[in-house]
Design a binder for these strands. Structure first.
Lengths: 343, 343
DNA sequence: TAATAGATTTGTATCGTTTCGAAAAACAGA
DNA sequence: TCTGTTTTTCGAAACGATACAAATCTATTA
């Protein structure tokens, strides 16, 4: 039953024409190659009739280009990444690219393995949220002329295109906002990580606190991603040890979710007992009661810039090394009830 | 700089050995083909030294198999799908498959286009949340011996493997739960859609209401997905028209988010004024105050079964038609504060 | 020593395209 | 009719791998 897929060769045979001619016509080179009108019509009609579709695999093998990009994120089920993924996919599609995605789970070994796998599938480019351990692999990718662009974080000492946001600045300003609202003891809650975005967010906080001559309080959870259970027990313990903390600044939204659990268990009132603020907005924050202030990253813009940056490399094939595409985007601070001014 | 990728041919030349021999060794057929120990060692050493990796594209072209599966979901940024995606990707990876994903946005035309695109890339299988309009395309896929499995919903009159959940039953039981709690006027809130899962959820509700000799109240919003703004104004209007509604049953979680917005604007108390219940659990529901009861789909199991079902087809290549893999999984009802018994 | 069996290794077609260089056909002008 | 252009079409070699059939080599035996 399965009507075998027809190839260009079948068409050639059926029409008694050479393969080359068919190929030219299909690829719109009829003009250029001066193929006669009748021939073009004959072939086009037949192609339409049998519904021929070229085999992309073979094309890729021949051309060395696959029109496939890989999106390697930390965790595709995290809403930030899932949203970026959706936006990217849409934009990629418009430019004739497909996207393969995968989650690294911040596991350098897994990420390396993935990179190798995709290299051998001749993907054209990589969009990556890297871990520090990936430096060599990424350097190699660049050397081998793959298009590469990093986002969310980047790798120090590695000259590579990237799209990030103003983590430090936003964090600094948000902290100041808490201070202006009268916070005396602000705790910055983060996870153990050498990722640049986390470092920068911390740095912004520290800077603001120092400038206000306050003491910094940083609580660092062991590294984990958003997929695990949100019980917030560690944060709860920390808060019990620091009952005078009057503001919590979460380095990322999933930490905030844990924190809200903790706050609820301790029956603290927001913002009366503690102000709450988080990096990475989430629809959840506008619905929670009270609503939670957050620093929103410009998702659409991030996706736009990523696509722009990688297309530059893909288009001028080969000379990618010469291109510097390093973008740092502005975030938006969204004030909600959780950081309302205390009288 | 870009050290050209080396091919099997380069190795053969460098070692003065035939291509075939190299291929045998690389593919672990050395034993079977009685290649001498020394030869094997020589080749393996060289392969390791130069870090040769076979070109999957070429392999696929030759074998007709690409070890790539496509996951076509309604919207990858929806947490339900994003979670399934992550789980699937992981399982696929373990079985040597990669996953390409894409969002159909419930747009039949876009979906058709995607299917064609992927066909010509020789993907091995499709995992799809279909729209009704996709019937022909899917029939063709099956005829052409692609592995195909549907999930979340299925297509009536189409004999195709699928993994779904007991929508009707869970909906029925959840409605009964509301009734037992004393609800007198339960509104079922859904979106316009001919998708089977939505129909079944509605059917379960209607059945329970009828059995209790109550009147059904169904509010149907125009179709939309979770990515849009959650303002819930339409639901708010409906509730204003039906001030005596004392329980809301949302057909899916993003509708519940809209509903919660509406409820907040109307300053209704949950569960005192209205009980709230939703299909599709979300971490949000356990954190919201009060926490929201929900019907949780078994994500991990769904992903497991999908993988199992598609592997069956992939493994016995060709005879896929003969296999019947239709699974209906049990959901878990999670009772929380939003449907606590009223005295 | 030649024949034979078994152990190793190799040549070549193939998957479906693209593309280069060349061939064939058509048309002029002489 | 012949030569020279211009049009049009084609053959064959890649791309990188696999798999069939066949060739080569090494012992062993008659």
């Amino acid at each position: 039953m399965a009507n075998k897929k027809i190839s260009i060769k079948d068409i050639a045979k059926a029409l008694g024409v050479s393969i080359t001619t068919i190929s030219f016509i299909i690829n719109g080179k009829a003009e250029e190659k001066r193929i006669s009108k009748e021939m073009v019509k004959k072939v086009e009609d037949y192609v339409a009739k049998v519904g021929y579709r070229p085999n992309h695999l073979a094309q890729s093998l021949r051309s060395g280009k696959s029109k496939v990009l890989v999106l390697m994120v930390e965790d595709i089920s995290n809403s930030f990444f899932a949203n970026i993924a959706r936006l990217l996919e849409e934009k990629a599609f418009k430019n004739g690219y497909k996207i393969i995605y995968c989650s690294t789970e911040n596991n350098t070994e897994k990420a390396k393995e993935l990179i190798h796998t995709f290299k051998s599938r001749n993907v054209d480019g990589f969009i990556i949220t890297p871990t520090a351990g990936l430096k060599n692999e990424i350097e190699n990718l660049i050397k081998e002329d793959f298009a590469v662009i990093l986002f969310d974080r980047w790798i120090p000492d590695l000259d590579c295109s990237h799209v990030i946001v103003e983590n430090r600045r936003s964090s600094f300003e948000a902290t100041q906002h808490l201070i202006e609202n009268g916070a005396k003891k602000i705790v910055f809650i983060t996870v153990t990580s050498d990722q640049t975005q986390m470092q920068d967010r911390l740095a912004g906080y520290l800077e603001a606190v120092k400038m206000a001559k306050m003491s910094p309080y940083v609580f660092e959870e062991p590294f984990h991603t958003s997929t695990e259970e949100f019980q917030g027990d560690q944060i709860k313990e920390y808060l019990l040890d620091h009952p005078d903390a009057d503001a919590l600044f979460f380095a990322t939204n999933y930490l905030a979710f844990e924190g809200l659990h903790a706050i609820r268990k301790l029956e603290l009132k927001i913002p009366k007992d503690v102000q709450v603020l988080a990096f990475d907005d989430h629809f959840f924050f506008s619905l929670y009661q009270p609503s939670i202030s957050a620093i929103a990253q410009p998702l659409e813009l991030i996706a736009d810039k990523l696509m722009e940056g990688i297309l530059i490399q893909l288009d001028d094939c080969g000379k990618s090394n010469s291109v510097e595409f390093k973008v740092e985007l502005v975030n938006q601070f969204i004030q909600r009830k959780s950081t309302e001014f205390k009288v």
